[in-house]
Design a protein around this nucleic acid. Structure first.
Lengths: 237, 237
DNA sequence: ACTGGACGACCGGTATACCAGTTGCAAGTG
DNA sequence: CACTTGCAACTGGTATACCGGTCGTCCAGT
C-alpha cells in the first residue's frame, strides 16, 4: 500500500532495458537522452536518471559530450563476472540452507519437480522462467538484505554478460532444472556446504555453456522502433 | 589526460559524504536538495544526482514528498554486510594470490612492515590509512574489474556499517596491521587458500571489534555547517 | 480546552532552456 | 587534389521553474 508507485524514471528504466536487451543498440550507436525521451514520449529527466542508473549498474558507459553507449563484455570479464556471482549466490545458498525453508521457495521446488517428472509437457521458456524464480527466491531465502541488495546491484552485469540467451534448448533447460533441484535438496537437507558447492558447480556449468555459445554477440540488429518482445522479466540463468 | 575531469556532481558527492560521515545528519534530519545546494553553493541538479547515487549505494533513503534521510544500520544487517564483504574480499585475496604481486602492493607491504617494526613511530591514523590502501591495492591486485566494481558499489555500505570509527587505539591498529601483513604474506607466497582464509578471519575479527563498540551510534551531533574534518578518504577497515 | 479543517512551507519529481565540449562535414585554400 | 578550417548539429551537464503531494501549524467552531 505504501510504496510501489511507479515513477516516470522507473518506466523509462524498464523500457530502456527492454530496448538494450532486445538488441536495438550495438556498442557504437549512442543512447541519446533526447532521442530516447522523444521515442518513449516522456521528458528528458526521467530518461537521464534511468541511464544514470544503468551506468551505475555497469550496463552503459557515459562519455560526456559524446554519448551514452552500451558496454561490451570481454570474454575475460565474463569469467570474472561469474566468479563474483559464484561468491554471492554461493553465499546465498549457504545461508538459505541454514534457516527454515521459505514457503515460496518450497512452492517453486514443487513446480520444478513436476516439470522434471514430465519435462516434455513444458516449454524451455517455462522451465527457464522457473529457474529464474528459483534464483530469486533462493536469494530471498538467504534472509540477508545486504546480500540481496548486492546481488541486485550486480544483476544487470550478469544479464549483460549472458545477453544472447532465450533460446534454451529443451535439453539444456532440463539439465539446468536438474541442477536447480539438486541445490534445493541440499538447502532442504540443511546442508550449507553442499548447497554452496552445488550452486558454484551450477554456475560454473552455466559459464561453460555460455562460453561455448560465443557466437552472434556482435550481430547488427535492425534498429527497431519500440516495444521489444521482452516484457521486462528478469533472467538469471 | 582523458578522463578525470571533476564534475559538479562529484564535488557534491564528496562533500555530502563528508557531511554524512562527519556526523552532521542523524536519521531524522532530512538532506534537502535545495538546502544542500544552497549550503554547498551549487545547483540543485548535481546535489540531486549525488543523492541519487548515495541512494543506490544504500547510504540514503528517499521518501518522495517527505525528504531524503540517512539509513540506519541494524546490528543484524551489520553482520550480514560483513558476510558479503568476506565473500567479495575473500575472493579478491584468493585471486590476488594467483597472479604476480603488483608493484604498488609490494610497496604498501614494505611500508606496513616498517610500521610493524617500530610501531611507536607512527600514529594510529597513519597505520589505519595504510590498511585502507592495502585493501584497495589488494582489490586491484585481484585483476578482476567486475569484482572491483562490485566492491565499489558495496563499499559505502561497509562505511555506513562501521561508521563510528576513526579513533583506533594504537593497540588495535597494530593488531590490524599484523593481520594485513599476514594476508600479504599468503598472497606473496602464492597460497590462494591461505590468503582467503586469512582475509576472512581478518574481517571476522573486524566485525567482532565493531560489535564491541556498539555505543554512541545514536549520538545527536551539533548540526555543524560545512567542512568536515574528513578529507574524503576511504576507510575500509 | 479541545478538535477539525484549511492554508502555507517544504519535499522530491519533472519539464524546459541554456551551456560548453565534441565531431563530422563541407567549403575555402594551398 | 590534398589539406586546413570553421560552422552546424549533435552530445551530456547544469540551472531554473513549476507540479502535485505531504505535513505542521494555526485558527475557527464547538
Amino acid at each position: 500500500m505504501s510504496a510501489s508507485f511507479e515513477f516516470e524514471r522507473d518506466r523509462a528504466y524498464n523500457r530502456i532495458v527492454a530496448l538494450i536487451f532486445g538488441g536495438t543498440y550495438d556498442a557504437a550507436t549512442p543512447l541519446s537522452e533526447r532521442k530516447l525521451a522523444q521515442a518513449l514520449d516522456m521528458g528528458r529527466m526521467p530518461v537521464r536518471e534511468a541511464l544514470r542508473q544503468l551506468e551505475q549498474e555497469g550496463v552503459v558507459e557515459v562519455r560526456p559530450a559524446r554519448g551514452t553507449f552500451v558496454r561490451s563484455v570481454s570474454p575475460e570479464d565474463l569469467a570474472e563476472v561469474y566468479r563474483v556471482r559464484e561468491a554471492l549466490e554461493g553465499l546465498a545458498a549457504e545461508l538459505a540452507a541454514g534457516r527454515p525453508t521459505t514457503g515460496a521457495l518450497a512452492a517453486c521446488g514443487t513446480r520444478m519437480r513436476i516439470m522434471a517428472r514430465d519435462a516434455s509437457a513444458f516449454t524451455a521458456a517455462e522451465i527457464d522462467d522457473a529457474g529464474t524464480e528459483f534464483h530469486n527466491l533462493l536469494m530471498e531465502a538467504s534472509g540477508s538484505v545486504p546480500l540481496s541488495e548486492a546481488v541486485r546491484l550486480f544483476r544487470m552485469r550478469f544479464r549483460l554478460a549472458f545477453h544472447l540467451p532465450r533460446y534454451f534448448a529443451q535439453e539444456i533447460a532440463q539439465e539446468t532444472l536438474a541442477e536447480h533441484i539438486a541445490i534445493l535438496e541440499a538447502v532442504e537437507a540443511r546442508d550449507p556446504v553442499a548447497a554452496r558447492a552445488r550452486m558454484v558447480d551450477h554456475l560454473a556449468r552455466g559459464l561453460e555453456l555460455r562460453l561455448k555459445l560465443e557466437t552472434g554477440v556482435g550481430r547488427k540488429p535492425a534498429k527497431g522502433t519500440d516495444t521489444s518482445s521482452n516484457s521486462g522479466m528478469e533472467k538469471t540463468q
